[in-house]
Design a binder for these strands. Sequence first.
DNA 1: CGACGCGTTGATATGGCTCAAGAGTGGTGG
DNA 2: CCACCACTCTTGAGCCATATCAACGCGTCG
Lengths: 224, 224
Amino acid sequence: MYVTTSQDHLPARAPDSRRLKGAIRIARTVTLAAGQTLFREGDVAPSVYEISSGIVRLTRVTENGRRQIIAFGYPGDIVGFPCCGRYHAECDALVPTTLVPMRADVLDDPAISPALHATLVAAALREIRLMQDHFLMLGRKSAREKLASFIDVLARRVGHATRAGAVVDLPMSRADIADFLGLTTETVSRGFTQLREAGIIALRGPHRVVILDTARLRAQTECD
Amino acid sequence: MYVTTSQDHLPARAPDSRRLKGAIRIARTVTLAAGQTLFREGDVAPSVYEISSGIVRLTRVTENGRRQIIAFGYPGDIVGFPCCGRYHAECDALVPTTLVPMRADVLDDPAISPALHATLVAAALREIRLMQDHFLMLGRKSAREKLASFIDVLARRVGHATRAGAVVDLPMSRADIADFLGLTTETVSRGFTQLREAGIIALRGPHRVVILDTARLRAQTECD
DNA sequence: CGACGCGTTGATATGGCTCAAGAGTGGTGG
DNA sequence: CCACCACTCTTGAGCCATATCAACGCGTCG
């Protein structure tokens, strides 16, 4: 499941890794260093990938260079759904990442591996749903709401509970967050500052957030 | 294929209606009057629909009532992709509409109808791609660019060439356009006025646009 | 040590939202 | 057939949130 800013996630449903580790795997794993690119927009798409560890960034770019980050992919997510045999986004590793490649043609022909095919179709349908959630965010939320939603979703997905509060790592840059939320880096930075000054979060450096008051953070995700 | 504001559509690929009219059809067609609702968010999803004629609107609403229109569905589009057996958007007819229902469980079990299953999977993957295009629009385009893109895409999809220029019908309200583009009705209305005053379009009433200068309209879709 | 990239902060500009009023437009009933 | 009403669309004025432009701090790396 992608990290979007959806408020109502589906029940966490870890992909059945036994299935994914069946005969369909075309290589044991792919390993990427931070910053490396897995595929680019327009590349032919031989594989779909399940993220084993690490974090990736899925990006679309317009002709004149404006960027939009479609999603951040975390372990368990499936990335690289092709359309007409090609990828239509760029996928880069934010941190050292390992992925399990799976033959993309399983999507076209269920006979190759019925179980894997079903898993991939379900993942594709789930992605449609999550992208729809993200539409609401991009189109209908203020900068503060976007940022609060982003932190909240990441906290639910990958936060660690500690005595001080849930700790969330944000390995992506401010520019990445801005391009994900449809904002500028300055606005994102100001948003973090405001949440910190309100006592809702604390910052342990720019890439680590501690959520001090989850209730108030959630209240910020969709103000009336 | 949904109407999104994508600039680079896939080659128009009409679904093979012979396939869709096979044994899987659970009813001949569904007919909706303008304004009628086909399904709502959260409904169990027995069917996926191919639009035969008419136009539908797919909508998501937040808890506090903010609306986002996900897509407008035109003939040939497939709507109602379920996730976990339920619809996750509301579907209403904008004008009298007929749809061909297809059993949604074909998505889960290819054996029911391999050909239809393949068609639906391909449509789902195409939808992911088109939604990604729309992300760029919602997140990274100005009001003028959004509106110009919207008109341009509709013109390519459903425009009629005439001597005066391409004529496009917009049966949806200004509020619908606004909720699709992440704007307000006022901003949409002003956008039409500006395009008209610039000589790029003419308005034959609020629901019919004539594109007088396609090149300049396209230039507005993504200014640097 | 200096250059660079990134994040933060400040000052200002501005695009789109909000609030408000008018102008069509279509439907209904007298 | 017309008067009225409800609704949508348009237009205007002002404001606010966010973008833009600019400067600075800080850490990293050569």
